Simulated scan of single mutants.
Amino acid sequence: MLSWEEEQIQSLLSAKTETAFFAVLSRIALKLGFDYCAFGMRLPLPIADPKVITLNNYSTSWQQRYTQENYIAVDPTVSHGMKSTLPLVWSDEVFSKSRAFWEDAQSHGLRIGWAQSCHDRRGVSGLLSLARSNDQFSISELNDISLKMSWLTQAAQQGLSRLLVPKFLPEANADLTPREIEVLRWTADGKTSNEVGDIMHISERTVNFHVTNALIKLNAPNKTAAAIKAAMLGML
């Protein structure tokens, strides 16, 4: 017999589309006692305006309100998730610096909740939020489901990134050679092609050859951008 975790990961990883994936995630959340579920994924690029993809089953009115008021800028679950991967249980104290947002969320039925983030080696971040309108958490409930929710965060990250990263961040799967990686490392440290050649005991022309190949694989306009991309994607 499959364990609970094995059953859920099979369901999540078998999803072929984002819609199918979120349908599975929502069903798992409901079985854990939550009416609402949201998963946001933040890609590390472009650096000036990182792409964010969000899937949720919140009411249309709350989704519109959240966007119109730019609540992402004051949402403490988001700021916490950017700094820590520890789970966060919603409370008045958590939302003490964003009271208007908290009161607005409660008026839309979002009163009890939990959130946790995760980050992978490519710099892709995910934030899982589970919520409901009533029934405060009890100690026994948290003890019973906290590990499952934390596990679900990791599984959701893996499942959704499998679908979205190839589509929105194909550079993340670039197959750089060891030489290309080494050249970009020295470039990221501010070395010129001539200096990199001296360090690696190869000609400047060979350095530029490796740089050119890296530019193509990373879809970068110049070597500085390539070095930054490779670093942000955890390749260096």
Rank of each mutant, 00 (worst) to 15 (best):
E141T: 12
E171Q: 15
R162E: 07
R162K: 15
V124S: 05
L147E: 13
I145D: 08
L160H: 01
T153S: 12
Q157A: 08
I139K: 15
S138M: 05
N134Q: 13
N134T: 14
Q154G: 08
G126W: 02
Q154M: 14
S150W: 12
R122N: 06
P170N: 09
S125R: 13
S129A: 13
I145M: 06
L142Q: 12
S125C: 08
N134S: 14
D135I: 07
K167S: 04
G126Y: 08
A155K: 07
Q158T: 10
D144Q: 14
S150A: 15
V124I: 15
K148H: 13
S150M: 15
K167L: 05
R122S: 04
G126Q: 03
D144V: 04
L169I: 10
D120E: 10
L130M: 08
D135L: 06
R121F: 06
S133F: 05
I139M: 10
S125A: 11
S129M: 12
W151Y: 15
L164F: 00
E171I: 04
H119A: 07
S146E: 12
A156I: 01
F168G: 02
L160W: 05
Q158K: 10
D135Y: 04
K167N: 00
A155M: 06
D120T: 08
E141W: 03
S125T: 09
W151C: 04
I139V: 15
T153I: 10
L130I: 07
Q154V: 14
K148E: 13
E141Q: 13
Q154I: 15
R162F: 10
